[in-house]
Nucleic acid binder design. Sequence first.
RNA 1: GGGAAGAUAGCCAAGUGGCCAACGGCAACAGACUGUAAAUCUGUCCUCUUCGGAGUUCGUAGGUUCGAAUCCUACUCUUCCCA
Length: 430
Amino acid sequence: MFSDFIEELSWRGLIQHKIDGLEERLSEKMAVGYIGFDPTANSLHVGSLLPIMVLVRFQRAGHKPIAIVGGGTGMIGDPSGKTAERQLLDSQTLQKNVEGLKNQLYKYLDFENGENKAELLNNIDWLGKLSMIDFLRDVGKYFRVNVMLTKDSVKKRIESEVGISFTEFTYQILQAYDFEYLYRTKNCILQMGATDQWGNITAGTDYIRYKHGSEGRVFGLTFPLVTKADGTKFGKSEKGNVWLDPNLTTPYQFYQFWLRCDDNTAPKFLRYYTLLDKQKIEQLEQEHAQAPHLRILQHALADEITTFVHGKDALNLARKTTKALFSKNLEEAFAGLSDEEINLILSGADSITISREQLQTGLSILDAIVLSGLKQSKGDARKLIQSNGFSVNKLKWTQPNDVLTEKHLLQNKFIMLQSGKSDIVVLKTE
RNA sequence: GGGAAGAUAGCCAAGUGGCCAACGGCAACAGACUGUAAAUCUGUCCUCUUCGGAGUUCGUAGGUUCGAAUCCUACUCUUCCCA
């Protein structure tokens, strides 16, 4: 039962590097493996979803996952993939971020049941106790500077204009120490991470081998950094980062993010981020090829991931809201719905609330656009209208000097403001 | 310690006394075509605006000039060469 983890990752295209022998070791018996999460923000965003899914698959394959939040290493800053020295966070912010990450990870892994229940640890608990002298005597002795210099993350920074501080240079030792600590105390034999972590991971496996000799047979595995087919940065919407916290990115916005995925990237993301099996994904691809305009892959992607991250109820609401807002005929879409149903559907959308009196006296359309956040100034709002990019209740609005009044209300309740094709804000009245 | 080159908008980068809110590219936003996709073509793209304009930018601070991103001085930072 332990054997299919590597095979699974492999067909999903999730293996970039791995240390030989891992597959055999995993098939023998339950293994303990870990991934570290960086507390640079107080919520995880979609970029962290891939490591989470890898841990989830690891646990589903019968192994025991450990998630580390980097309360200690976060104080230092990982130079991997960074062109400039990291701005250090103060310990209060860091502490808050660590708590935020913990709460989210509890949602995705099973921390309750079975021999392979997940664990969550904060590396400040052991790194914080390490004294300077102990560190240099017991840990630093095992690291050769010439080897450390060859790591990509260090090499790139040394060659760059900004260089690298001693602090960040030592980062790999701390991460290696984490791995060794987990090996020693939790019998953890595998560290996983994105491709840019390979140097840090091998620093750990080398360290364990030196320190524990032939007993120290441990493994590393990396998965690709997420990219999109068009080369643009993954994980940003027009409003910024896409977060996993529903208070920062609503389930509707989250659902929409995946729904807008392009055709070339969708098959990859289905493999990366969903628990659908190979057969199902290939079937979806065939259906998609038959009728691409139905966007079958995008719907499957958005449905699966939104359910996983926010749950079935949130998905249903996001779908209902999407269906209502993107319907061609609004009157029809809302006809026959009760007040409660309408309120529920609108509660999922981005919205602003204004007073009834403002509509009675007439609300300038430019003000409305700025209030809604669709554009940040009246000048921008005017340009939007002039370029034919603004609609009210799905009808193009061409007069920048006109006003919104009660006659624009749908169901006597709300007005739909839309910039471009997909950015919709609902204006509600009190 | 000595010398040389450089710093321009979110990023890259041209401009070396007036024609400069500053060529071009990327990213971003909007339109057309589509499928809330990609590609392509078009428009916008320092800030605000009552769309008439107004205000603030070319490392920082001064200066020369009717006029400075452009010339001068000092300072800060970066890169390279020599010791």
